[in-house]
């Protein structure tokens, strides 16, 4: 959890600390008093589109000035020492930006040179090898698949051995196998002592791969914890029931109605298997015909809906992002 300001010991231990970080765009409060401490871990910032994830990353990577609050990256204040911050981090934005007219190797060497790496050619070779791109390294990036382009971007980001790696939606637009591969690389990096700060709106990926997750909505952190503990927050089991007719409410001890999505009702309870017949009877008594029922473990989606309720995606759609996701140039 976040340390208090008197807690200097832990401030030094955390490579990334923010305190009341706030950013407004006119009327919109994009990031609202965000306070976080991130250690050497895979830290996931999850939330729907437009919840303030990217704005947070842009502030932490010194691309955007916060309106108030502060943040330190590896001990450097993002406002006072932006250059030091940029030397300690790497940032892979959401848009997949690799130079398609350059070869994979040229793309990486360029970044090695820009980072001032001592031996750019050898170092580029190393990271290309780590990311399994060596056999295609001298082909133009134009022929790379989405997953390979993402890995090429990771190679560019890793070429100077950053202490913190910022990944904004690293798996958007990739197929299942490519996603898994990206996450496996991220895990290896964490195991080697790198802090990885990831934003994603894929709850299942955050659940599976992040050490800790912060759930953000409308710029506010709703909860920060390990995925397991976040899920433990709501209940042991989730019962979902499809019904016909209008749901008017039931009263079964130990079963809590959570929300309704069209004809599907979601209940939280401690022992799903035992509660199932009781819920069925109660619904029948209330005059609802039960079409199907199931018991499952809670997911981060459930936690999210529990914390913020079902909302609608109101963020403006960025056509440029879409075009980049499709790999068209």
């Amino acid at each position: 959890m976040a340390p208090t300001s008197s807690d200097n010991q832990s401030l030094q231990e955390y490579p990334l600390v923010t305190h009341s970080l706030t950013k407004r765009f006119g009327e919109l409060l994009a990031v609202d008093t965000l306070t976080l401490s991130v250690g050497t871990e895979i830290f996931g910032l999850v939330g729907p589109n437009g919840s303030g994830k990217t704005t947070t990353v842009l502030m932490l990577t010194t691309l955007l000035d916060p309106d108030s609050g502060d943040a330190t990256i590896c001990g450097y204040d993002i406002r006072k020492h932006p250059r030091r911050v940029r030397e300690s981090i790497s940032y892979v934005p959401q848009d997949m930006a690799v130079d398609v007219r350059l070869t994979g190797r040229e793309n990486v060497i360029m970044f090695a040179e820009l980072y001032g790496v001592k031996n750019p050619v050898e170092r580029s070779n190393e990271v290309l090898k780590i990311l399994d791109l060596l056999d295609r390294a001298d082909k133009r990036a134009k022929v790379y698949s989405g997953g390979m382009r993402r890995r090429l971007e990771l190679a560019q980001a890793l070429v100077h051995n950053p202490k913190i790696l910022f990944l904004d939606e690293p798996t958007v637009g990739l197929d299942v196998a490519a996603r898994k591969k990206i996450w496996e690389y991220i895990r290896t990096l964490r195991n080697d002592g790198m802090t990885v700060f990831v934003t994603t709106h894929y709850m299942d990926e955050a659940d599976r791969y992040c050490d800790r997750v912060a759930i953000i909505d409308h710029g506010r952190i709703q909860a920060v914890d390990t995925p397991a503990r976040l899920k433990g927050m709501i209940s042991e089991d989730i019962i979902s029931v499809s019904i016909a007719g209008t749901f008017t409410g039931i009263d079964v001890p130990g079963v809590k109605f959570a929300h309704q999505e069209e004809d599907t009702l979601i209940f939280h309870c401690e022992n799903g298997a035992a509660a199932l017949p009781l819920v069925k009877d109660a619904l029948s008594d209330a005059g609802n015909q039960v079409l199907s029922m199931s018991v499952r473990q809670p997911s981060l989606d459930d936690v999210f809906l529990h914390l913020v309720g079902p909302g609608e995606d109101k963020s403006p759609f960025k056509s440029s992002t879409f075009r980049n996701m499709m790999g068209k140039r």
Binding site: R83, R86, I89, Y91, D95, F111, Y115, G116, Q156, S320
Partner: peptide
Amino acid sequence: RMLGFFNKFLALPPP
């Protein structure tokens, strides 16, 4: 800027 390179470059250490 449109393709996202500019943001990547701005986050790099060179002035």
